[in-house]
């Protein structure tokens, strides 16, 4: 409540919530021993495989880590336009 009123008046978010956000992200990566380069590679390879089956716009592809409590989830977003017609190859 407090935050939304402040934001209405164009106030900056509290530095404590910025700290928490940044920490969550960096700790998720620390825990998994994952860095940006590896994430990029993963995204690239996943895209290669999925592109065989689906058609999607490359700009909207997103691979990220989500941190909740003690567990981490790998979230891959591939909004696809349509499936390729694979019957042709068979």
């Amino acid at each position: 409540m407090n935050i939304s009123i402040r934001q209405l008046f164009g106030r900056k978010p509290k530095s404590s919530s910025i700290a928490k956000q940044r920490l969550k992200l960096v700790i998720t990566q620390d825990r998994l021993d994952v860095d940006d380069r590896m994430m990029m590679r993963l995204q690239h390879e996943l895209t290669e495989v999925l592109a065989k089956y689906f058609e999607f716009s490359m700009n909207s592809v997103q691979v990220s880590l989500k941190h909740e409590g003690n567990s981490c989830t790998l979230v891959a977003d591939f909004p696809y336009k349509k499936a390729h017609d694979l019957s042709v190859n068979r």
Partner: peptide
């Protein structure tokens, strides 16, 4: 500092470290 939002509170810290 916690009261004015310049320091993470205990809930924030617990949420991260678990």
């Amino acid at each position: 500092l916690v009261g004015n939002g310049s320091m993470m509170d205990q809930a924030d810290v617990m949420d991260i470290l678990n």
